[in-house]
Amino acid sequence: MEQKTERFIKKVENAFASGKVSIIEFEILIKEWRQFISVRCYEEEDSKQIHRNLNHLKLTMDWFRRRCYSDKNEDLLEFFQIMIDYISVELESLKLNSDVRKITSDIAGTPEDTMSWTASKRALIEVICALHLANCINDGNISIKKMVVQFSKLFKINLDNYHPEISKMTTRTPLKDKGLRAYFLSSLVKRFNEKMTNLK
């Protein structure tokens, strides 16, 4: 890879050897430099390794600029500085992306922050059915199957056997004195009211 770096540097040197570089030639060199950085530094997905690659290339370019081209024309030295500045921008962008990923991770929650459904599967299916029948999700424009899939992902719980459970709910004996078939939701309402009363 170092040979590729040296070859690219020679290409830049040759471009400036004939005199002034036009804006179009300048844009082409910058575009090629961007492509070179992409291949040279972003071969791996590990952000730490990318950071190391960028810094290594930056040091290499600075060494060439200060040691190898001290007697060359000012335009060439200026272009080398632009190449180094370009790497600095890449490093800042990488840092920004890392910060964004961290913020996103903080918002989404780490694996330790994931929620677990600790009641029974039957209770969760009852909740899903209630939300579906009351059109609480997407104004009802979603199938119960999709809702089951989403809740399964959310709580990392297997609800593949939801059809028989729903069938059982339709044939449940209503709760005594209440005429309700929502066993879990009824107990939930009771506990909610008790807790809210105690908070007064």
Rank of each mutant, 00 (worst) to 15 (best):
I28G: 04
K102W: 05
C41A: 13
N193H: 11
E43D: 10
S70R: 14
Y162I: 00
K4A: 13
D139M: 13
E25R: 00
K4Q: 11
I142K: 02
E74D: 03
V189A: 15
L57E: 01
E126L: 05
D75L: 13
E194K: 12
L59R: 11
Y183Q: 07
H163T: 13
C129K: 12
L76I: 06
L91M: 14
H56W: 10
D113S: 08
K10S: 08
C129F: 13
A17S: 14
K31R: 09
S186A: 15
R66Y: 06
T118N: 12
I9P: 01
T171Q: 14
S120P: 01
P164A: 03
Y69M: 05
E78M: 01
E92W: 07
P174C: 06
F8H: 05
D106K: 00
L188E: 02
K195A: 12
A182M: 12
I128V: 06
Y162E: 05
D46H: 11
Y86R: 12
L185Y: 02
K146L: 12
T197H: 13
I166M: 03
A15D: 06
H51I: 03
F64K: 06
L76S: 02
T173P: 01
N135T: 10
L91C: 11
S93P: 00
S152Q: 04
H51R: 14
N138D: 14
S105H: 03
F8C: 00
Q35L: 12
S70F: 12
K153W: 12
I24G: 01
R172V: 01
G109V: 05
L29F: 04
I23F: 09
M61D: 03
K156A: 15
A134T: 15
D46L: 03
F151D: 06
V39S: 06
E90H: 11
L94M: 07
V89T: 13
H132W: 15
S98V: 07
